[in-house]
């Protein structure tokens, strides 16, 4: 609750500190020169009131589920968010899933093969994932898999000729499956592959490196030796005994991965014309669409808080010493 007030306050301050006049950004050249039009604009959006009052009004509206009206398209911000969040959620969730499976897997392999060739190769790969700019990976990916090989579609969520599945969750793959539309599912999935992989690249690198070091820290512990001494098979020792103890670190990094995905989405969605929150945020920011910007900030804040909360709960589930403390 307190956190909510804090976040809206910060978001509110930030958006008001931004140098730039929303009227200038949203009105045509003609209207700008007409003081009456500017005043009307400012009055319409409540911009002529003192800041504390603006904030109070804003809070009041939030509590009632009203995030204001976008200055760009005059839709309710909640409506816009409702429309764009599912697209981003689908992209982000798949991307995180891939990053976790691949990153943790490679991290464990690198640790087990420590200082062998595999480890060195994986080190280069993960460093590459972390340090190569996302836009570059995106462009290379598009060039190779779309333009050259034509294995994957280029942009958008579906081919233009394919109509979206009946709305259920807004996640096209899920909705298509629910409606039994296999070809729509396949089409939506193909569109997801490239952007989600691009979005996953830096997280794969991050997770590989942190998992490797967490596993190495655990693997020399006495209790791992005990597990071997009991005659537990090697893979069980790694999965049950070692990875279990490394999990708190891994979970922390997965939390960070969510943050990366939120920022990465802005870039990736713009490159792949993905109609999600990232693109919306970009458009609102460049047009100084304050209600939309604040709506996006609020959404991002809610995601952070939720992810952090889940991470904290998971710590307790994983480690009985925390659970009972």
């Amino acid at each position: 609750m307190l956190l909510g007030v804090g976040i809206t306050f910060v978001a509110f301050c930030l958006t008001n500190i931004v140098p730039g006049d929303p009227a200038a950004a949203n009105l045509g050249q003609r209207a700008i020169e007409d003081p009456a039009a500017v005043a009307a604009f400012r009055h319409h959006y409540g911009l002529d009131k003192p800041l504390p009052e603006q904030y109070g009004i804003y809070l009041w509206h939030i509590v009632h589920g009203d995030l204001g009206q976008s200055e760009q398209n005059h839709d309710a911000v909640t409506h816009d968010l409702g429309q764009f969040i599912p697209a981003t959620a689908e992209l982000a969730l798949l991307s995180i899933f891939v990053a976790v499976v691949v990153g943790v897997g490679l991290g464990v392999i690198a640790a087990v093969r420590r200082n062998k060739l595999t480890d060195h190769v994986l080190r280069v790969v993960s460093l590459g994932g972390v340090s190569m700019p996302t836009f570059w990976i995106a462009l290379v990916g598009l060039y190779v898999f779309f333009f050259r090989l034509n294995w994957l579609p280029g942009t958008g969520r579906l081919d233009p000729v394919v109509s979206p599945p009946p709305h259920l969750t807004g996640l096209f793959t899920v909705d298509a499956l629910a409606a039994g539309q296999w070809s729509t599912f396949w089409n939506a999935f193909q569109h997801l592959v490239l952007p989600s992989l691009v979005l996953a690249a830096s997280n794969i690198g991050l997770l590989t490196r942190y998992t490797r070091s967490a596993v190495l820290e655990v693997i020399s512990n006495d209790y791992v030796r005990s597990a071997r001494a009991k005659g537990m098979p090697g893979h069980t020792v790694i999965l049950r005994h070692v990875l279990r103890a490394a999990l708190p670190t891994v979970i922390t990094v997965i939390g960070l991965a969510f943050a990366n995905v939120m920022t990465g989405a802005v870039l990736v969605e713009n490159i792949f014309s993905w109609p999600g929150i990232g693109q919306y945020a970009y458009r609102s920011a460049t047009t100084l669409d304050l209600p939309a910007i604040m709506g996006v900030s609020l959404f991002v804040a809610v995601v952070y808080i939720t992810v952090n909360f889940i991470v904290d709960v998971l710590y307790g589930v994983i480690d009985p010493r925390i659970r009972l403390a």
């Binding site: 009991k230 005659g231 049950r240 279990r244 103890a245 010493r321």
Partner: peptide, 20 residues
Amino acid sequence: RGRDIAMVFQDPLTSLHPML
């Protein structure tokens, strides 16, 4: 290991897995 020859380690505080 464990079936023919088993071992009890010197340090009881570190030889059990803390999360299992």
